[in-house]
Nucleic acid binder design. Structure first.
Lengths: 244, 244
DNA sequence: GAGTGGTCTAGACCACTTT
DNA sequence: AAGTGGTCTAGACCACTCT
């Protein structure tokens, strides 16, 4: 493929990105179908396996649906899904996708012991120290997401730029801990807004969705604990529930 | 591969099932690692691509993690996840996995117009008819999940065995409509138990998680609408949030 | 029958980790 | 240096959907 030399990314990732771009740009909107595999192979100068690797990854996220003997269909239903909870994404992007202007309010940061609840999933002892960062994400200046991210102090480099505390947690982990989060395991629950009602600008008795999650790096070690709640009405978490 | 002739399933699916079985049976528990790819290829008499297709699918669901130069690690953290909301699964299996004895209480079934809320996602008109089936799933005889599944009446065959109404919705769709649900798009919200508190055996003011979902067949046509709520404490929905 | 995606193979080479 | 998983290719054949 021609781009190969310019930027050294995996071929199938280049193909993937190119296809996804054309899909969302509405390139194939006329028929809502992709060209045939052989045609794409010729056009992009890649082998069929490489092309299929890219298409498979898009299919697994639900954007495409392949039908033997017929062709590859673009699933506009899934392409238009917003606030996908089953994919790791930064809140600023999430809110932007929904058409809001995102901003963030830094509420506080403090060191505290992990405690029994967070120690176990993080493979720590209860009195090991965590740095907990609390933020409020706004959509068009209205409270949308309240979250506390906790990172084991032991992972944090001695000094890091102060402004990392005001960015999303993935940037913080990368900048201050040289850690990448490759997946999270989240547990969902419902609760009353209670103490959080003020920050969220809702009534204390209003029910809200809360998610507690543990984030893991590519080696499978836990690197963060996250608690977040969503203001009703602004952002409705959606999940693509797929069969195996 | 030897099994090939006996049952005519795809090779990579046979390999997948075989590996998953060995993983959950704790076959490789000693090291929590899979044998090397070449060894597995030799043992199972399949090409490397076929093996990798199987392993890739297990990796995408989080059960495995491959590390170049090192090997393939079994992720016990993910293997032990219960009540995975991001995978389509029958409640009886879900509850069984959690160690409960599952049972189901058939509450009611009735035909009703789709109404504006359900008509649009199902690609129907508001006064098109739906068959709505309401059930309560019990875990060790305690209420766990309350759900209403709605199927367009137009899809339902004129006659079907009565007992399909008492099974899970996937069985109903297969038996009465010859339809398969290949994925669902679910929206999550929180609400107060309210009217449902009696059936769920909780207080009316207790907050609960509700999910509204549309199920699609492999052709991408919507075939069901689903509303379900979870009793707190019994089943905590979990989601594997993966990066692309 | 022509054309689509689905499966499977064999083999080459690369990138990474460990010893 | 040896061994691991990762990428990529070329090609054969199959299963399905159209017309």
């Amino acid at each position: 493929m021609m781009i190969k030399s310019v930027e050294h990314t995996l071929l199938h990732l280049q193909v993937r990105r190119l296809l996804l771009n054309e899909i969302v740009r509405g390139e194939f909107a006329a028929a809502d179908m992709l060209p045939t595999e052989t045609e794409l192979c010729n056009r992009l100068k890649v082998s069929r396996s490489t092309l299929r690797q890219a298409v498979t990854s898009l299919e697994q996220e639900g954007y495409l649906r392949r039908r033997q003997g017929m062709g590859t269909i673009i699933d506009r239903e899934v392409c238009n899904m917003t606030a996908r909870f089953d994919l790791n994404s930064e809140f600023s992007i999430l809110l932007g996708d929904l058409g809001y202007t995102p901003s963030v309010l830094f509420l506080k940061a403090k060191e505290e012991p992990a405690g029994s609840e967070r120690a176990r999933p993080l493979h720590l002892k209860p009195d090991d120290s965590l740095l907990s960062i609390t933020k409020l994400w706004l959509a068009d200046n209205r409270p949308a997401i309240w979250c506390t991210d906790s990172v084991p102090t032991a992972l944090i480099r001695r000094s890091f730029p102060e402004d990392l505390l005001h960015k999303d947690i993935f940037s913080f982990l990368e900048g201050a801990c040289q850690q990448v989060v490759s997946y999270q395991i989240a547990s969902l629950s419902a609760r009353l807004a209670g103490d959080l009602s003020q920050d969220l600008g809702i009534e204390p008795g209003e029910p809200i969705i809360a998610s507690s999650a543990v984030g893991y790096n590519p080696r499978g070690s836990p690197v963060m604990y996250n608690f977040e709640v969503y203001a009703p009405g602004i952002l409705t978490p959606t999940v693509l529930r797929a069969k195996i």
